[in-house]
């Protein structure tokens, strides 16, 4: 059995009611979410939304004014936090120190014995394809390779939780894939992984769970699918082919109407047209709008070939909630 105090992979990280202000500026307001083991959780928010502050609080670099952070239901202590892996937003390593030496040092700082630290360093450098650069100083490496060393720094002590602030920023697409694979491997090994990113498509592709934060408040959290489907159904895409006869009779319509179809659909209460592309129309439904009435109206207009509730992308949800 491992040390009970130290926590194990397989425990989930929970934030409850976390608040923090700097001076009189409230940066985090009652933040709460869960990072589950074995899953990648994307942390999304605009600049200044409070992502970095949240991560620093998880790591214990900052103290919250109120609220709790727990791993597997236990309040975090320094020995538990020492087993977290962290990649700060602004990369932090010694520019003029050999990369193997700084990884060994960081392993030691995180509680590894010298021999373990050396072994893990060799393993990681090998896995990351940096074995031949082990004796080089960090600043002589390319940006992509420096980022890889930074990943190694977060992984060297085999963490029970990974917290990464913008791990993909500045990486080329190939490096992004490699980084994604590394994180996925850690998650598959049962480690909860929390990372922030501005690249929403990337989060969409990689993440199991998402947390969206805006002005210090969590506006959406949960599995990516759930967050998206919660918001589906309020937007529909229709493809309506006008009947040949209808076409002729529609001709003398009043001037100024966008097309016959749009004007027709907007007669239904609570329906507004979002966009139109030829015969395809995307409409938004107000909360009290009746989609069956919309369907009936569309059928009056022509043959309904498509009537699809749209599942919004994370990017769309994000733009909507932070607007």
């Amino acid at each position: 059995m491992r040390d009970e105090q130290a926590g194990d992979a397989g425990d989930e990280l929970t934030l409850t009611g976390v608040s923090r202000s700097f001076g009189d500026r409230l940066v985090l307001d009652d933040v709460g979410f869960t990072v589950r083991p074995g899953r990648m959780t994307g942390f999304i928010g605009a600049n200044g939304a409070g992502k970095t502050t949240t991560m620093r609080i998880v790591l214990g670099v900052l103290a919250p004014d109120a609220g709790r952070v727990e791993l597997g239901g236990r309040e975090l202590t320094r020995p538990v936090r020492r087993r977290f892996g962290y990649m700060p937003e602004e990369r932090g390593l010694y520019p003029k120190m050999r990369i193997d030496e700084q990884l060994v040092y960081l392993g030691r700082v995180h509680g590894l014995g010298l021999r373990d630290a050396r072994r893990r360093t060799d393993e990681l450098l090998d896995q990351l394809g940096l074995a031949d650069r082990a004796h080089d100083q960090l600043h002589t490496l390319s940006l992509g390779n420096q980022q890889r060393v930074q990943v190694a720094a977060a992984l060297v002590h085999d963490p029970v939780l990974l917290v990464l602030d913008e791990p993909f920023s500045g990486l080329d697409p190939i490096a992004v894939d490699a980084m994604g694979a590394h994180l996925r491997a850690r998650a598959d090994a049962g480690v909860p992984v929390l990372f922030s990113s501005h690249q929403l498509e990337l989060v969409e592709r990689l993440c199991d769970d998402v947390v969206i934060i805006d002005h210090g408040r969590v506006v959406a959290a949960g599995s990516a699918d759930a967050v998206r489907t919660q918001r589906k159904g309020r937007r529909l895409r229709l493809l309506v082919e006008p009947e040949p006869g209808e076409m002729a009779s529609a001709a003398p319509l009043a001037e100024g109407a966008p097309t016959g179809l749009s004007a027709f659909l907007e007669q239904v209460p609570g329906v507004s047209v979002h966009s139109q592309d030829g015969l395809r129309v995307v409409v938004d439904l107000a909360d009290d709008a009746d989609d069956q009435a919309l369907l009936a109206t569309a059928q009056q207009h022509g043959v309904v070939r498509e009537f699809t509730p749209l599942v919004p992308t994370l990017a769309e949800i994000f733009r909507e909630v932070v607007r």
């Binding site: 491992r2 040390d3 105090q5 130290a6 194990d8 992979a9 397989g10 020995p79 020492r82 087993r83 120190m97 030496e101 040092y105 030691r108 700082v109 995180h110 509680g111 590894l112 014995g113 373990d116 893990r120 393993e123 002590h157 085999d158 090994a189 049962g190 480690v191």
Partner: peptide, 29 residues
Amino acid sequence: MSTRAGVEVDAMSPWTAVRVVAAREIMVK
């Protein structure tokens, strides 16, 4: 727990930590 790769993390004493930090300072110097 196959992922632990046999790495043992001990509760670190202050003295160990201070020594590790001091050793880096000395090595860098």
